[in-house]
């Protein structure tokens, strides 16, 4: 099963994603903003990163950029958890190195089916 890092400043969202992933056996680490996530990323490697975009301190886009610079995250799938329906933000994320995005409203079944695309 995969090791997943989930980053979101809303505890409810963090917990829901973690709960969903753990319920199918993944191992989840949580961080409440980009700064914290980057520190975790420097010490540990993951099979998947799911991050919110709008966060205090370091946002999800900057986090994606910073993680991509770490050798351990060069090919790691990074998904942005976003409410943006528009393309602009998504493309900004992609330019920063994000693999793809998960559009809120958060739906557990959707999450599980979507991450198959990057975890196999």
């Amino acid at each position: 099963m995969a090791k997943v890092l989930i980053v979101d400043d809303m505890a409810s969202m963090r917990k829901m994603v973690a709960f969903t992933l753990e319920s199918v056996g993944h191992e989840v680490t949580s961080a409440e903003d980009g700064d914290v996530a980057l520190e975790i990323g420097k010490k540990d490697s993951f099979d998947l990163v799911i991050t919110d975009v709008n966060m205090p301190n370091m946002d999800g886009i900057t986090l994606t950029k910073s993680l991509r610079e770490l050798a351990a995250f060069k090919f790691t799938p990074i998904l942005l958890l976003t409410t943006e329906a528009g393309k602009d933000k998504k493309m900004e994320g992609k330019a920063a190195g994000a693999t793809g995005w998960l559009v809120k409203p958060f739906d557990p079944d959707k999450l599980l089916s979507t991450i198959k695309r990057v975890l196999g």
Binding site: D9, M10, S12, M13, M16, N54, M55, P56, L81, T83, K104, P105, F106, D107
Partner: peptide, 24 residues
């Protein structure tokens, strides 16, 4: 401004998840 934006944004995301359509 960012803090206010983030708060609104988070509430939007969460309320959509729980299908609180009016709030979202």
């Amino acid at each position: 401004v960012n803090t206010v934006f983030r708060a609104a944004h988070s509430i939007k995301g969460g309320s959509a998840t729980f299908s609180f359509t009016a709030v979202a």
